[in-house]
Design a binder for these strands. Structure first.
Lengths: 212, 212
DNA sequence: TCTAAAATATGACTATTAGTCATAATATAA
DNA sequence: TTATATTATGACTAATAGTCATATTTTAGA
């Protein structure tokens, strides 16, 4: 009975075709300037059909976010090297996140934009999946814990909190670059230099120490 | 000829009454769940009148953001103490920002939400005013510069960049708390503890040092 | 006090668009 | 070959931002 399987496959394919179409338009014109009719046209389907695969526009946006999160998750996990110290692994992961931000900017924005615009909304289960189980953040926590055990990372803050702090801090600077790139241009600040300098702050702190 | 002045005053008052009404509704029900008709009703005016004072819904939202920014600016400047070192002043300013986040959360969200949702939009002059002239960020840069001169703050990163990094980092953690408060509850992480721990990271960095 | 002009306010109307649903087309199974 | 199930359609509804012709109120000058 291969028919059911084929149908499931076809359904999944169609679903992905719709996401592809939405992605092309969203990435090109911005989330506010694309209508469901536009997407239907781009996907060569009728609007009603979109709603057979996604329960709302937001749900479609969420599907794009999930794609981005999967890419990021893969990038972050594939640089992990058990032979290295926790701190070294964290730095590698940081590099991977930087690469994601630079090379998959549209996905970065999809994640950031979705998070920000939905935060007023009522709870929906999916909202939490983003940060659960096999998420980048959870993996990040694990590696930090290893670093605390091997002594390469400061131990006075619980790994969970440290992960959230570092994650939010890095995302915060990326967000600034994404939102205020023009301002950085005006100030003649190079994005990459800014990111490198952030890493310095993360590693060595703010205070002026005699050492170093 | 006090008539013109009185009229200007009245115009300004009416404008503020509209912002008051919008604020009450936005803060209570969230930005997505309030219509211009709702605001007109709350302000005891007709919808058309709103458009005599604000050119769009977005413009009205922006007016709330400006209020928030003015409050923050005041809080940050009033803790400045010329007798103290740059680093001490920066820490004071950090405390002020924390207070703003905790006590004026609605304004914090107004700023954050506006920034995030408008970043796709085309340029409008106002977008830059947020971070110019007498803005909190510019003041922050000045104090950092003082700190670098008196030797209390590390000097290997230009003050402009340091300001942007620290600002974005702190905002990043606040944003996480605002967006993912529920997740922090689940992980049994206290918001205040998280913020205190962030300050530790900012001051002393991530690496495990023998000193301290 | 009266009146024309200016300033301010109104709300019915238009345009846009997310989401629905009765109907149609197509595929499956018996 | 036909009944049933699945998938697709697009005209329609509801909601709402923004407009504009009309009305009301205020001002200034005679």
């Amino acid at each position: 009975m291969g028919v059911l399987e084929r149908k499931a496959r076809e359904k999944e394919r169609r679903r992905n075709e719709i996401i592809d179409a939405a992605e092309r338009l969203f990435f090109k014109h911005g989330y506010d300037h694309v209508t469901m009719d536009d997407i239907a046209k781009e996907a060569e389907l009728s609007k009603g059909t979109l709603y057979l695969y996604f329960k709302s526009r937001e749900d479609l946006h969420y599907a794009i976010l999930i794609r981005g999160l999967e890419i990021l998750n893969r990038l972050i996990r594939e640089v992990y090297d058990a032979k290295k110290s926790g701190l070294e692994n964290i730095l590698q992961m940081g590099e991977a996140y930087i690469r994601f931000f630079r090379e998959k900017t549209d996905y970065f924005k999809a994640i950031m934009f979705f998070d920000a615009t939905r935060f007023e909304r009522v709870e929906n289960e999916s909202k939490f999946k983003i940060l659960q189980e096999d998420s980048p953040l959870v993996f990040f926590m694990e590696v930090l814990r290893q670093g605390q055990q091997d002594g390469s990372i400061k131990q006075d803050i619980p790994a969970e909190q440290l992960a959230i702090i570092l994650w939010s801090q890095v995302s915060g600077v990326f967000e600034f670059i994404a939102l205020r790139g023009k301002l950085l241009d005006m100030l003649q600040i190079d994005n990459i230099e800014l990111i490198r300098n952030q890493i310095k702050v993360l590693l060595y702190g703010l205070e002026n120490k005699q050492t170093d």
